[in-house]
């Protein structure tokens, strides 16, 4: 792009008035703004701080937190091990081993299911691409944000753990575009359970 390119827009800096150029009136105006905010917090209740452990932050419905693996009506994992999520994953944090579904009463209508489904939550960047990619709405990101663990191994979530996230959140967050969680649950409990 050269200097005469038609798409280039020439900008002129705005003309400053005398008051602007003296700084002082503008500084005072600025001080007034911060003073208003300080007064709002000290004398009013305009503070937006959430007193975290006592009060829980309620994330927006499309918040992308810990993953869960959804179950269908018969309690089977919905995932069909198509590996589209691990294909879409930019962080390569999803590892799936697919296998042929057993010829039992329960699994008769299913062809393939994940023998192992592992998400490395430490490597995950919570972009939500897996959720977008999933053709059967099996993987979803929940509103759980307090994801902690005491070791790297604890943060590698296997199928059991991901299914237990579903059990933990299914009431607060119904599958697919449910209402926002009324009472967020803590995923710290989840990790502690498995210590």
């Amino acid at each position: 792009m050269n200097a005469n390119h038609p798409d280039l827009k020439r900008m002129t800096p705005p003309k400053l008035s005398l008051g602007d150029r003296l700084y002082v009136p503008q500084v005072i105006a600025g001080l007034a703004v911060t003073a208003r905010h300080m007064a709002g917090v000290v004398f009013g209740d305009s503070a937006i701080t959430v007193q975290y452990p006592e009060d829980q932050h309620i994330p927006s419905p499309n918040y992308r937190g810990v993953h869960r693996l959804n179950k269908d009506e018969s309690g089977r994992v919905k995932c069909v091990a198509c590996m589209l999520c691990s294909t879409a994953c930019p962080a390569h944090c999803i590892d799936i081993v697919g296998t042929t579904a057993p010829e039992t009463e329960l699994w008769g209508d299913r062809e393939k299911y994940p023998a192992s489904f592992v998400i490395d939550e430490l490597r995950c960047i919570f972009c939500g691409m897996c959720e977008e990619a999933c053709p059967v709405e099996a993987i979803e990101l929940t509103g759980l944000y307090d994801l902690t663990g005491l070791s790297r191994e604890q943060m590698i979530f296997d199928k059991t753990k991901l299914l237990s996230v579903f059990d933990l959140t299914k009431d607060a967050e119904p599958m697919r575009y449910g209402s926002p969680p009324s009472r967020p649950t803590s995923s710290t409990e989840l990790v502690r359970d498995s210590i």
């Binding site: 917090v41 000290v42 305009s46 701080t49």
Partner: peptide, 10 residues
């Protein structure tokens, strides 16, 4: 504290 108050925090 001043920083927090100016930013609507506690």
């Amino acid at each position: 504290k001043v920083a927090a108050y100016a930013q609507d925090r506690i």
